[in-house]
Amino acid sequence: MTLTIFFNELKRYFYSPVAYVISAVFSITVGWMFFNSIIQYIAQIQAIGPGGEGQISFDNIIFSLFGNVNFLLLFIIPLLTMGLISTEKKYKSIFVLYSAPIDDWEIILGKYFAAVFVALFMICLTFIFPVILHFAGLSDKSFFFSGYLALFFNILLYTSLGVLGSCLSENQMVSGLISFAMIMATWMLSWVTQITANYYFVELFHYIGLSLHFESVAKGILNYSDLAYYFSGTFFALLVSRKILNARNW
């Protein structure tokens, strides 16, 4: 039944303007950012003078590209997920799911994967940029694999937090803001390390914070600890979502 819910949810995403509008905004913004980094790159080369190509690598462009996409996801994912559960509760269509002989896991997972699918669909729209860089003469493409892998993991985690936010309120605006705050928090936690010198705190918050893991995956270093971080975070968020859905006490 997870599949039934998944397909139904996808249909609703793509029958409504939501998926298209978000995708359009997303790709235009990423395109603009990409264009600007190229301009900057060219400006830097020109500043150094003839023969500068060798001294400044493409890496900067690539890293800024992934960084930018990731930054956009902070906003896009809450927009995509905020209505998943909250509007169903508000308009009572959730009763259809509650009265069906299915487990709450199936509801959560069906919706979660539908949102992940739409987010990945948007990410696919950015595949055009590596292609452009390829024709511009980029030789080392391993960056892209690790970069996209890191984005993929981020999407898994962000979307699970989005689903959780959506379970927390019947108002989709509130849900979206909660999700946004939670996703922001995964980044901001690592900033705590700057205000304390306590070794254990620093280590702990470094691990809980997302940036360490994102950077390590994006650089192509895939540790077990990073995998464990992403999957436990995602699983935990979905587990809590299911618990909330299961309570039915409003």
């Binding site: 609703r12 029958y15 409504s16 308009y91 009572k92 269509s93 959730i94 009763f95 259809v96 009265s99």
Partner: peptide
């Protein structure tokens, strides 16, 4: 069940 609030997906 047909509950008092209609359980419909309006879209």
């Amino acid at each position: 069940i047909l509950p008092d609030e209609l359980p419909l997906y309006y879209d």
